[in-house]
Each structure stands twice: as C-alpha cells, then as structure tokens.
Simulated assay, not measured.
Amino acid sequence: MPNSTTVTEFLLTGFSDVWEFRVLHTMLFLLVYLATLTGNLLIVTVIIVDQRLHTPMYFFILNLSVLDMCYISVTVPKACVIFLLNNRVISMVGCAAQIFLVVLCACTELLLLTIMARDRYVAICQPLHYHVIMTPRVCVQMTLASVLSGLVYAGVHTGNTFHLSFCHSNVVHQFFCDIPSLLKLSCSNILTNQISIFVSATIVAGGCFSFITKSYIHIFSTVLKFPTRAEHRKAFSTCIPHILIVIVFISSGAAVNLKPTSNSPLIQDMVISVFYSVVPPFLNPVIYTLRNKQIKESIWKVMRRTLTSFRKVIIISTHSYFDCKS
C-alpha cells in the first residue's frame, strides 16, 4: 500500500469525551477494582491463615483469587488513566503485553474452573479415594499445567496477531487492547487468524464446558442418591458457587466471542467487554463469601482476631504514653 503509514502505537477509546462522564467512569472502575482486590485478597489471606481450609478445593479457590487480581489489574488501571487523564496512547509493546496477559488469564481461569469441577467430582462421587487422587502434588501439577497451557495459548495468538501489518487507523475501539479490535485495523489477510482463533477457542472452551457439564451430571446423579437432606445441602453448598462462577465466566466470554462484531455499535462492544474482563473477577469473591459457609466463618474469625490484636496495640500504646507522661 503506497500511501499507508506503518502503525507504531495505538490509541485506546473511552466511553465518553464529556469530562463529567469520564470522572464518573473512573470512579466506578476504581471502586470495582478496589473491591475486587480487597475481596480476593481477603479470601487468599483467610485460606492461608485458617488451617481448616488447607484442602484441595480451597487451594484452587486461592489460585482463582490470585488469578482474578491479576486479570482485572491488566485492564482497569490503564482504563482509569484513559478516562481521567484522557491519555489514550499505548505502545505496540504495551498493547502486545496487554493482549498476552488478558488471554493468559482468561484461558488459565477457564482451565482452573475445569480442574475445580474435577475436584468436586472426585470429592462427591469417589470420596474414599479423594485423598489418594487429589494429593497436594497432583493439585500443584494441575495448576501449573493450566498456567503453562495458558502461556502457550496466549503466546500463539499474540504472536499471530502482531505478525500482521497495521497500516490503517491506529484507533482501537476498545478501552483495552484485544485481538478482535486489532484485526479490524490490519491491512493484512486476517482470514487465517480468524479461523485459528475460532477453532482453538471452540476446542478449548467447548472441551472445558463439556468436561464441566459431564462432571456435574455425575455429581447431581450421585447427590440425589444421598439418604438425607443435610447431605444434599452440604454437597450442593460446595458446588453452587463454582457453578455460578462458571456460568458468569463462560456466558460473558461467549457474548464477546460469538456475537457479530462487524456492524455492532462501539458502546455495545465496550459494555460487553466490561462483562468479560471486569465482572467475573469482581463477582467471584462475592459468590464465594455469600455461598460458602466455611469461608464466611473464617473471615469473621480473622476479622475478630485482627480487631482484638488492634485493640491490644491501642491499649498498650495508651498505657505506654501515660507511663511516659508520669
């Protein structure tokens, strides 16, 4: 293309150019970000501190919370800078890093949710063999396998995307860099990229969804055979939070990847991306703290212990102050 200019940096897009709305969007994103970090950090702290929660199920919940903090940190801080300071510029390297980390976190979270379904299946359907099958070594190996798979998946698609030439507009119609938005800016043939993304996403997401569905079919058929309602409630209490998180994550991801993007309005695309990149990390700690009795009890226990320690520090400081005065 003789009259084209090679793109060296991109311009991200905010929801509005009006100052008041930009401030409002910044406050909303910042509140969600802080709430997400606080909730997930609280879950991580409680699981580490409480010895009762040192089980495979809570080990995976801990990893999910750490992953959610990383996931939302990739997009929201930069979005707040865009909204508040109108600093829309992101370098080619920064855009590539953002795409890589978003895809890595999304793929790893999906694989981790699949592993958690496997954990629930073994715990409920094969309880006598649970501690033999779900050993600490196996749990660590499965977690590392999900992270390594996410690294490979993110590396392949990020490399394929930035192997293209960008010589059209450098305005990314999104508040963070994502692959569909960049493909629209490419002057190369993107058919191969679109086919590889569709096929790989169908295999990974479809395979994980099928495995999760199959696991819960066996789980529910086993739970319904339990003799008492108390056993039903105990089994469902450990499964329902995971099911809700899977529904939120997969439905939001499907809304982004399966919708027709060619003629969809800009604001619609950006709002759907919020549900994909921001809402799942925000809702995960809420769902687990509201639905999981052990985590709620541990949180109150840690909070009471912290308040008691803080009260003792104040009393000791007060006594020391008056002793010095006297």
Score class of each variant (00 low, 15 high):
Pro2His: 12
Asn3Thr: 15
Thr6Leu: 14
Leu12Asn: 03
Ser16Asp: 15
Trp19Ser: 11
Phe21Asp: 14
Thr26His: 09
Val32Asn: 10
Gly39Tyr: 05
Leu42Arg: 03
Ile43Asn: 06
Thr45Ala: 11
Ile48Ser: 10
Val49Phe: 04
Arg52Ser: 11
Leu53Ile: 05
Thr55Leu: 07
Pro56Tyr: 03
Phe60Leu: 15
Leu64Pro: 02
Val66Lys: 09
Met69His: 02
Ile72Val: 14
Val74His: 00
Val76Tyr: 02
Pro77Asn: 04
Ile82Met: 09
Phe83Gln: 12
Arg88Tyr: 11
Ile90Phe: 06
Cys95Glu: 04
Ala96Gly: 12
Val102Lys: 04
Val103Cys: 07
Ala106His: 07
Thr114Asn: 14
Met116Asn: 11
Ala117Asp: 10
Tyr121Met: 09
Val122Asp: 02
Gln126Asp: 13
Pro127Cys: 09
Ile133Gly: 03
Met134Lys: 02
Gln141His: 10
Met142Lys: 12
Ala145Met: 12
Ser149Val: 01
Thr161Leu: 14
Val171Gln: 14
His173Lys: 14
Pro180Gly: 09
Leu182Tyr: 05
Ser188Ile: 07
Ser188Tyr: 06
Ile190Gln: 00
Ile195Ser: 00
Ser196Leu: 13
Ser200Gly: 02
Thr202Gln: 04
Ile203Val: 15
Gly207Cys: 06
Phe211Gln: 08
Ile212Leu: 05
Ser215Gly: 03
Thr222Trp: 02
Thr222His: 11
Pro227Asn: 10
Ser237His: 10
Ala254Phe: 15
Ala255Trp: 06
Pro260Gly: 04
Gln268Glu: 15
Phe275Ile: 03
Val279Trp: 03
Leu283Glu: 04
Leu283Ser: 07
Val286Ile: 15
Tyr288Trp: 13
Thr289Ser: 08
Asn292Arg: 00
Asn292Leu: 07
Val302Phe: 02
Met303Gln: 09
Arg304Pro: 00
Thr306Phe: 12
Arg311Trp: 06
Cys324Asp: 09
